[in-house]
Amino acid sequence: MKVIFLKDVKGKGKKGEIKNVPDGYARNFLFKKGLAIEATPANLKELE
Rank of each mutant, 00 (worst) to 15 (best):
20 N>G: 07
20 N>H: 14
27 R>V: 11
7 K>N: 07
37 I>A: 07
23 D>L: 15
31 F>N: 02
22 P>Y: 08
12 K>H: 15
3 V>N: 00
46 E>G: 13
14 K>D: 05
25 Y>Q: 04
42 A>N: 11
48 E>K: 10
22 P>S: 10
15 K>T: 09
12 K>T: 12
35 L>Q: 03
11 G>Y: 09
1 M>H: 05
40 T>M: 05
5 F>S: 00
34 G>K: 11
9 V>I: 08
31 F>S: 02
31 F>R: 01
26 A>P: 01
18 I>R: 02
46 E>F: 14
25 Y>L: 08
17 E>H: 04
27 R>A: 06
15 K>A: 13
28 N>F: 13
32 K>G: 05
27 R>K: 11
38 E>W: 07
47 L>R: 09
15 K>L: 07
17 E>I: 02
2 K>H: 09
46 E>M: 14
35 L>P: 00
2 K>I: 14
5 F>E: 00
47 L>Y: 14
27 R>E: 07
27 R>N: 08
11 G>L: 05
19 K>D: 03
30 L>P: 01
47 L>Q: 10
7 K>F: 14
2 K>Q: 12
36 A>T: 01
11 G>I: 01
1 M>A: 05
38 E>H: 07
4 I>E: 02
32 K>F: 07
4 I>H: 02
39 A>N: 03
22 P>I: 06
9 V>N: 01
17 E>P: 00
14 K>Q: 10
40 T>K: 06
26 A>R: 02
34 G>Y: 08
14 K>L: 11
28 N>M: 11
11 G>F: 08
17 E>W: 04
32 K>H: 08
16 G>Q: 03
10 K>R: 14
4 I>P: 00
33 K>H: 15
24 G>K: 12
23 D>T: 15
45 K>A: 14
18 I>Q: 04
14 K>Y: 12
10 K>H: 13
43 N>W: 07
24 G>H: 14
19 K>I: 10
12 K>G: 13
12 K>S: 13
44 L>I: 12
36 A>Q: 01
33 K>E: 11
15 K>S: 09
9 V>Q: 01
38 E>S: 08
22 P>L: 08
1 M>S: 04
42 A>S: 11
14 K>M: 13
31 F>V: 06
27 R>M: 10
28 N>K: 11
38 E>L: 11
21 V>E: 03
23 D>H: 13
12 K>A: 15
20 N>F: 15
48 E>W: 10
28 N>E: 13
16 G>R: 03
42 A>P: 07
37 I>N: 02
5 F>I: 01
4 I>M: 09
23 D>W: 14
4 I>N: 00
3 V>A: 01
42 A>E: 14
45 K>G: 09
10 K>P: 15
40 T>Q: 04
10 K>M: 14
7 K>V: 14
44 L>H: 06
44 L>E: 06
16 G>A: 03
3 V>T: 01
3 V>P: 00
29 F>Y: 15
24 G>V: 12
18 I>Y: 03
22 P>T: 09
10 K>T: 10
16 G>Y: 09
19 K>G: 08
40 T>P: 05
3 V>Q: 00
9 V>Y: 04
6 L>R: 03
25 Y>A: 05
11 G>M: 05
41 P>N: 09
34 G>N: 11
41 P>D: 13
15 K>Y: 06
21 V>Y: 07
7 K>D: 05
44 L>Y: 06
43 N>Q: 08
20 N>A: 12
40 T>L: 07
43 N>T: 10
41 P>Q: 12
39 A>I: 06
21 V>L: 05
6 L>Q: 03
32 K>L: 12
46 E>L: 15
30 L>R: 00
44 L>Q: 08
28 N>H: 12
6 L>S: 02
42 A>Q: 14
26 A>Q: 05
41 P>R: 09
26 A>N: 02
19 K>M: 10
31 F>D: 01
24 G>I: 12
39 A>Q: 02
39 A>E: 02
45 K>Y: 09
8 D>Y: 09
43 N>Y: 09
40 T>Y: 06
16 G>M: 05
14 K>G: 06
46 E>K: 14
45 K>V: 10
4 I>S: 01
1 M>P: 03
39 A>K: 02
14 K>V: 11
38 E>T: 05
3 V>I: 08
46 E>Y: 14
43 N>H: 09
8 D>M: 06
4 I>G: 00
19 K>S: 07
6 L>Y: 03
15 K>V: 09
11 G>S: 06
48 E>H: 13
31 F>K: 03
6 L>E: 01
43 N>E: 06
28 N>W: 12
25 Y>P: 04
16 G>F: 09
5 F>N: 00
1 M>G: 03
4 I>L: 11
23 D>F: 15
13 G>T: 03
16 G>W: 10
26 A>S: 04
31 F>L: 11
39 A>L: 08
5 F>G: 01
2 K>F: 15
33 K>P: 02
20 N>K: 14
26 A>I: 07
41 P>G: 09
44 L>D: 05
45 K>S: 11
29 F>L: 07
7 K>I: 11
46 E>P: 07
20 N>V: 15
19 K>E: 03
27 R>G: 02
28 N>P: 00
41 P>W: 13
17 E>S: 05
11 G>D: 08
36 A>D: 01
36 A>R: 00
16 G>S: 04
17 E>M: 06
11 G>R: 06
17 E>T: 07
20 N>P: 07
43 N>R: 10
40 T>W: 04
45 K>F: 10
42 A>V: 10
7 K>E: 10
39 A>V: 06
39 A>D: 02
17 E>L: 03
28 N>R: 11
43 N>K: 08
42 A>W: 08
31 F>E: 02
9 V>P: 01
20 N>E: 14
11 G>N: 09
37 I>D: 02
31 F>P: 01
20 N>Y: 15
18 I>W: 03
18 I>T: 06
34 G>Q: 08
25 Y>H: 03
29 F>I: 10
9 V>D: 01
30 L>E: 00
13 G>H: 11
38 E>A: 11
10 K>G: 08
1 M>Q: 05
14 K>P: 01
24 G>E: 14
24 G>Y: 14
23 D>N: 13
36 A>I: 07
6 L>P: 00
48 E>G: 14
21 V>M: 12
36 A>H: 00
15 K>M: 10
12 K>N: 08
13 G>Y: 13
12 K>M: 15
3 V>R: 00
23 D>Q: 14
10 K>A: 13
38 E>P: 14
34 G>E: 05
5 F>R: 00
8 D>E: 08
44 L>A: 06
43 N>P: 04
